[in-house]
Design a protein around this nucleic acid. Structure first.
Lengths: 211, 211
DNA sequence: ATAATTTTATGACTATCAGTCATTCGATTA
DNA sequence: TAATCGAATGACTGATAGTCATAAAATTAT
């Protein structure tokens, strides 16, 4: 009988339902303010059950995070497909990243946490691994756009595509981190619009790639 | 009698002793693994006493952080004083920042936490305020170096010094964050030396400022 | 010198929450 | 109908941030 397969499916469904609930709770109250009991209540399950599907709060959190990465990856794929020239692809990716930070701010904030923590990638089959996988895929999209730019002459040829992708990634996340966490504060204190910072940053990054 | 003044001094001294102890504990075990009881034991005080001087663990942590900011500010001041030309000052600041991240990695890691959290600046007289103050001073150093560069012609004149300083700050912290948290992982996975990333980033940032 | 007052320090206690585990429930199979 | 097995439960444990009534020490007033 195909009972095992159905069970497998149901197990996956339940897992996703738990992530759905966790997402709602984490996004509405913030990760630190959310308890596993909150998530359990939202999922209409007992706390113990959560631990059958995720071995810790961090795992569950990373599972939510992975969805964010997947959205980002899609946005990046769309971005590069629209533009022809390599440098314009990179510009489009930059815009897409900033758009992601604004439109999917909950996912983005979750990603910040991920980026700023020393995550343990060692345990096999963990959600951290999955995040890392999608993250690397996303980086490869950036690297390939740079490669395209080098070939079509819109980007200087002395750059290593993957290394440059890592740099752009680091720089962008730093900027968007400032935007997200200190943006309002800067606006009040120094009369600087966060959007200006993001646009200026984009312009500067594009310039650093030009021949 | 000058008793009040001496008491004031002693109170400050005790406060600093607590920060000393907290620093040792936080740096040796990591913030999350450190308990207030650990800090109290290290300071040879009771936990209750800690709360007479700091209203929460976060406050105490921010107090440690402020020291890091002060070191960074000093390094930046030294950096700009060595070089003449504006763009070289900026390069020197960049190098100083990367040096800080390596030599004072404990302080730097603490700062990452600060940078990646939504800190509450509202409460009067809090340690967060102090960090913010030193942070702004540090930014002003960067901005003034950019201004110098615009005047001496080494940096393009269409940039707003303070906004550009914010961008450079955000980009740099993003890069160094990648370097610190994911560097080893990148090295293993993609055979990329973290130092290369930092140098490439510096070069790209300098290029984005050039006329 | 002594009592009254004010400041500083204590540590037992509370509240909260991540994670566990013996037990129950329910579906599948014999 | 009984036996088996995986899924689910929720009371329990351990850890720890933060509190508060009380004590000790220092300062000031009598």
């Amino acid at each position: 009988m195909g009972t095992t397969e159905r069970r497998e499916r149901e197990k996956l469904r339940r897992k996703n339902e738990i992530i759905d609930s966790a997402e709602r709770v984490f996004f509405s109250k913030g990760l630190d303010q959310s308890t596993m009991d909150d998530v359990a209540a939202e999922a209409e399950l007992s706390k113990g059950t959560l631990y059958l599907y995720f071995k810790s709060k961090e795992e569950l959190y990373l599972a939510v995070n992975e969805r964010g990465f997947q959205i980002l990856q899609t946005l990046f794929s769309e971005a590069i497909s629209i533009e022809q020239n390599g440098l314009d692809k990179i510009r489009a990716i930059g815009q897409a990243y900033f758009k992601f930070a604004q439109q999917y701010s909950d996912y983005f904030n979750a990603m910040l946490y991920y980026e700023s923590r020393d995550i343990d990638f060692s345990i096999e089959n963990s959600c951290a691994r999955a995040c890392e996988e999608v993250g690397t895929e996303t980086l490869k999209i950036v690297a390939s756009a740079i490669q395209t730019g080098i070939v079509d002459g819109s980007i200087r040829s002395d750059l290593d595509p993957f290394k440059t992708a890592v740099v752009l990634w680091g720089q962008s996340s730093g900027i968007v981190q400032v935007h997200t966490l200190k943006g309002q504060h800067f606006q009040e204190k120094h009369k600087i619009k966060p959007e200006e910072i993001m646009q200026l940053s984009l312009e500067m990054m594009a310039r650093s790639l030009q021949v």
